[in-house]
């Protein structure tokens, strides 16, 4: 298996006024090249710390993190790590540097010292990928949240990274912005074959992932395909997370003695399962 990111046996501690709190405990996780991984967890579960470790912003206290075989702990590798793993953050405002959209997108490639004509090509292509090309000469502060976040994404893909870590990219957006950003993320994975690590607590963003990792108090609680992870409704609810309404509906019906599969997420799948159930139960013969 070809892994882009390898987190092995990592412990990370946070010190504040002599109080040491362990954020991550002996955590190991590898991310396969080209995959789409979602990391779920409530606030304070250590998921953001994990994201920053994977993108080389933080260095582990013990254990190692490698990106494309490069150890992040070595200061000298910093640029090499960052150009391979990009990161998009929660607050769209706080990651845009320049006063014009296209100049912001150019910021990363400029730092890499690429020739001006190459930068231009990358900026234009990145803006087209996120569907913001028409806004290239706009001022960022006049854009909507979803648009700003897409500009931030363009700024990362202009560096042509192998992998992008998204740290709750939709939590400050309205439903429309959320849809725009999620569509963009899916497209990057499917069309550009960029490895995606998405940190979120929105369950509906899990549906199309290859893999879901659920974190709780600095450890991995569940790890698997979305349908497998969401068959553990009780475990997920126990740590204060939600499951999609469809999953919960079928789960509760199953608790009442009806035979239904676990971990159903998509609305369409839920409808077909219910139809099959109603047919089986032959509901009153007359109507069905």
């Amino acid at each position: 298996m070809d892994n882009i990111i390898e987190v092995s046996d990592v412990t990370f501690e946070y010190t504040d006024n002599d109080n040491v709190s362990t954020v991550l405990k002996n955590l190991s996780l590898s991310v396969e090249r080209g995959s789409f991984t979602v990391i779920l967890g409530h606030n304070g579960s250590g998921k953001s710390t994990l994201a920053k470790l994977m993108s080389g912003l933080l260095k582990p206290d013990s254990g190692t993190v490698t990106v494309d075989g490069i150890t992040t702990a070595d200061e000298q590798n910093e640029i090499e790590v960052h150009r391979r793993v990009g990161m998009v953050f929660q607050n769209p405002d706080n990651q845009i540097v320049a006063t014009i959209v296209e100049e912001d997108v150019a910021f990363g490639p400029e730092n890499l010292g690429l020739p001006p004509n190459v930068i231009r090509e990358r900026v234009d292509s990145a803006l087209k990928t996120v569907d913001m090309y028409d806004y290239r000469l706009h001022a960022p502060h006049k854009l909507s949240g979803g648009q700003k976040q897409r500009v931030a994404i363009a700024g990362i893909i202009a560096m042509e990274p192998e992998c992008i870590v998204f740290d709750e990219p939709t939590s400050m957006l309205d439903p429309k912005g959320r849809r725009e950003v999620m569509d963009t993320i899916y497209r990057l994975n499917k069309e550009k074959n960029i490895t995606i690590v998405l940190i979120t607590h929105y369950m509906e963003e899990v549906e199309k992932a290859d893999r879901v990792v659920v974190m709780d108090s600095g450890e991995i609680l569940l790890d698997g395909k979305p349908s497998d992870v969401f068959s553990q409704v009780e475990k997920i609810k126990e740590i204060g997370l939600d499951v999609p309404q469809t999953t919960e509906l079928l789960y509760l019906l199953k608790q009442n003695g009806y035979e239904l599969p676990d971990g159903v997420i998509a609305t369409g799948d839920c409808v077909s399962e219910l139809l099959a159930l109603l047919r089986r139960e032959n509901c009153g013969n007359t109507e069905c």
């Binding site: 920053k52 993108s55 912003l57 910093e78 640029i79 960052h82 150009r83 990009g86 990161m87 953050f89 607050n91 405002d93 706080n94 990651q95 540097v97 296209e102 100049e103 150019a106 910021f107 990363g108 490639p109 400029e110 730092n111 890499l112 010292g113 690429l114 020739p115 001006p116 930068i119 231009r120 900026v123 931030a152 700024g155 990362i156 560096m159």
Partner: peptide, 24 residues
């Protein structure tokens, strides 16, 4: 915001003025 921005800039390979090229 300053703290967030510093992290975002670091992720975008910002390393001061040396080695930086301009698009325009």
């Amino acid at each position: 915001r300053a703290y967030d921005l510093a992290e975002a800039m670091e992720c975008r390979c910002y390393n001061g003025g040396s080695g930086r090229q301009r698009m325009k």
